[in-house]
């Protein structure tokens, strides 16, 4: 079962770990980053092919927006899903990802649904043949 790889960027291990385990049980490979710096390092080194980045903007909103913007410009094969509620977020997020930010605390099934939707949207846009 290979649903692709999700990079989960979340500062709180007590949030990150159960979310990661849930996604693994659903068939995803999950890479974990405790902050934006770790996320960039994983993406840059490309040792783990990543399809979707789920990033919590709650603790470092500016850093997360910068990460999302960098992914958009430098990592064209990677989708970004933002989570959390911070001022300006809806406007910023609208420029950086397709959907509105996910709310926290995470509803695991909603996160899974969003990841599926995001991947399906990319598949629809991909050139046929």
């Amino acid at each position: 079962m290979d649903e692709g790889c999700v990079l989960l960027v979340e500062a709180d291990i007590l949030v990150r770990q159960p979310m990661a385990e849930y996604l693994r049980e659903c068939g995803y490979k999950v890479a974990e980053a405790a902050n934006v710096t770790e996320a960039r390092q994983l993406l840059r080194e490309r040792k783990i092919p990543i399809d979707v980045v789920l990033v919590d903007a709650g603790t470092d909103a500016e850093g997360c927006f910068a990460l999302a913007s960098w992914i958009r410009s430098d990592q064209p094969g990677v989708d970004v899903i933002l989570a959390g509620t911070v001022p300006k977020m809806a406007g910023e997020a609208g420029d950086l990802c397709e959907e509105t930010p996910l709310k926290k605390p995470y509803d695991h099934s909603l996160v899974l649904e969003r990841i599926k939707q995001t991947r399906a949207a990319r598949d629809r846009k991909a050139p046929k043949g």
Binding site: E32, A33, E38, L42, K47
Partner: peptide, 10 residues
């Protein structure tokens, strides 16, 4: 070291 951690975890 995130890359070491991720690869060893794998």
């Amino acid at each position: 070291e995130v890359v070491v951690r991720a690869l060893l975890a794998d």
